[in-house]
Amino acid sequence: MSIDVRHVSKTFNGFAALRDVSLRVAAGELVALLGPSGCGKTTLLRVIAGLEAPDPGGSVGFGGALAEARRIGFVFQHYALFRHMTVFENVAFGLRVRRGPRRLDEAQIREKVSALLRLVQLEMLARHHPHQLSGGQRQRVALARALAVEPKALLLDEPFGALDARVRQELRRWLRRLHEELRITSIFVTHDQEEALELAERIVVLNQGRVEQEGSPAEVFHRPASEFVMNFVGSVNLFHGRLVQGRPVFETAPGAPATRFCSRPHELEIETRRDGGSSLPARVVRVFDAGAHVKMELRGREGQAWHVELNPERYRELGLRSGQEVWVRPRRFRVFPAGDGSFPREPI
């Protein structure tokens, strides 16, 4: 089933959570809604699920499924499992409340719930209550419960938000495999760019209730449409200066209106000697030498914070220590037109 969000706005007591959002999700697609907290991503998910009504003028359409089969599964951030029911009864709930010709008898319910518990690898825990389970297990129960009604679309609100890093990694891969197997149209909400980049086939970046950019993970990462997107899907180093014949010239004197140059940490070049006019002086504040890249924190003359990632060979070649004076030069940079796309604060 495809999902077609058309001009949806949503206002809560004068606060505009969504402003004219339009979005198409193709059947079988796995889409991430990515954005900082308060950007409206959960509201959008709830509008699609029918848990909130959009403001007049907006609508959500579903295509490719008969009206009576337009079921949408929703997995809540905190799972919202029924505490007084066993795992089995939680998963069976959607089948038990069914009325009419599609109603299943007890044996069919047992069979179906057992199959779902096998799918989420929880058949051993069928008789447990939710409070006896770990976070990752609860998450899987919530998923099995949503899948029990054979949804044509699956909506997940921060599916891994409440889990620790390792479980998150595992569940992410598992969910990806599950999606490849079942091919249910899925939308998940996250504020974790890594999660979005790794799991989604397409990413929709939201900011202050608007769609900031839509595209594949590679597009969003390598060709960000605005400074906000660039900052949100990775770290950004900011340089102020002027563009002179396609080359950046960095003014060390602040005050005059300047162009903002954005570079990723791995796009910075570090030198121990000054190299022409496009370098800036900085001091090495901290070095993190545990990982595939050496990460460094630099501080400029005016207190600017810059983050650099070097490959270990280059790091050793330069022989850097913390406290050392160096020169920084952005090897690659992007300039975005000034506007509401700019990030309101200095890069982290």
Partner: peptide
């Protein structure tokens, strides 16, 4: 959210209240 979960699973308002 528990009531909302019941609604998304196809329960009527009364079923969600009673169950």
């Amino acid at each position: 959210e528990q009531e909302e979960a019941a609604l998304t699973l196809g329960a009527t308002r009364w079923q969600s209240f009673a169950r």
